[in-house]
Design a protein around this nucleic acid. Structure first.
Length: 322
DNA sequence: AAGGCGGGGCA
DNA sequence: TGCCCAGCCTT
């Protein structure tokens, strides 16, 4: 590798690669400014609290499902102080079937912490955001960038896929690694924080509506001619996708059913009767009796919910937490 | 590093 | 049916 010609060649490739990256960023920003979906949290007047709520709701949940629930929450609790004053049970009940109800508990805890520790204003500092419950690497960067124009690298599953394909020529992103992922995104981030925000949001949007996991819409992609994956003629993924546990019949499903019962009974139910309520709420209609093993499993999961702060034992009863 | 954690939309 | 979704947290 000491041949001058080779070194020159390498330098030339690096320069080409850097130019391509800059061009990708520019084009995605231009595309995003013209084509972004008009979500309410993208309104220039949206508060930092509104943005934080939208990000928490969007964790593992499609934006289309988030939007109506976000509007409802903003009506009910337009500020952290408003939510902090509400009983956590009410936040869980309003969260309803959005999924991962611990997010509702954590969002309420966020509101309480923001009031207690930040005077009711969402903190703009990345580390202060990270210290809040349910606010991790992604969400802290997203709030800092989108709400406060901080130059932070925002990396979610969409961004990782876009970078894997456009930059690295891989069909599927490597397993998430926030340190490495953010270092890579930071290298692409424009110096101007306002443009950095547009690149952050634009890369996510591109992954969501064009560079999709299953059916990428390359014909309509603004960086198709710059995409390394396309240039290499779409090599397939080398690693096998991780198999995820089946949902039907799982503990997760049963936990969801217990939560549904608790939401529908504001005063809770007698703990020992919980299996019957769950059974009646629409399980695989078997006999009229509750299977003992199934009942015990239900009660065990209810205990887990208490442990996780999603439910509360109140004498002989169990209910949503105060 | 891996696994648990909801629920719905869509091919 | 299986896969995916603007992740986070614990072990």
């Amino acid at each position: 590798m000491n041949e001058p010609a080779l070194i020159a060649s390498v330098r030339s490739d690096d320069a080409t690669s850097a130019d391509r990256s800059v061009e990708i960023v520019e084009r995605v920003i231009a595309w995003f400014e013209a084509n972004q979906r008009p979500f309410p949290w993208r309104d220039p007047d949206c508060s930092a609290w509104g943005i934080l709520v939208s990000e928490v709701m969007s964790q593992q949940t499609q934006m289309s499902r988030v939007e109506p629930k976000w509007r409802e929450f903003m009506e009910l609790w337009p500020t952290p102080a408003a939510m902090a004053e509400a009983p956590v049970a009410e936040v869980i009940r309003r969260w309803d079937r959005l999924g991962y109800p611990r997010r509702a508990v954590n969002l309420h805890r966020c509101a309480v912490a923001i009031v207690a520790e930040h005077g009711g204003s969402v903190p703009s500092d990345r580390d202060a955001l990270l210290a809040l419950p349910a606010i991790g690497a992604y969400t802290s960067a997203a709030v800092a960038s989108f709400a406060f124009l901080r130059r932070e690298p925002v990396v979610d599953t969409n961004v990782r896929r876009v970078l894997a394909r456009a930059i690295h020529g891989e069909a599927v992103a490597w397993p998430a690694n926030s340190k490495r992922d953010e270092r890579e995104m930071l290298a692409l981030l424009p110096e101007d924080p306002a443009r950095a925000k547009l690149w952050n949001a634009g890369a996510m949007e591109l992954g969501a509506v064009k560079c999709q996991s299953k059916k990428p819409l390359c014909e309509a992609c603004p960086i198709a001619e710059l995409c390394t994956w396309r240039e290499r003629d779409y090599p397939a993924a080398t690693e096998k996708p991780r198999v995820q546990a089946k949902f039907e019949g799982s503990d997760r499903q049963l936990r969801g059913r217990v939560m549904a019962v608790l939401r529908e009974h504001p005063d809770g139910v007698v703990f020992a009767d919980l299996p019957e309520f769950v059974e009646a709420s629409g399980v695989p209609a078997a006999s009229g009796t509750v299977d003992v093993a199934h009942a015990n499993r239900t009660l065990q999961l209810a205990e887990d919910l208490v442990r996780d702060g999603l439910a509360q034992r109140d004498g002989s009863r169990i209910r949503l937490p105060h």
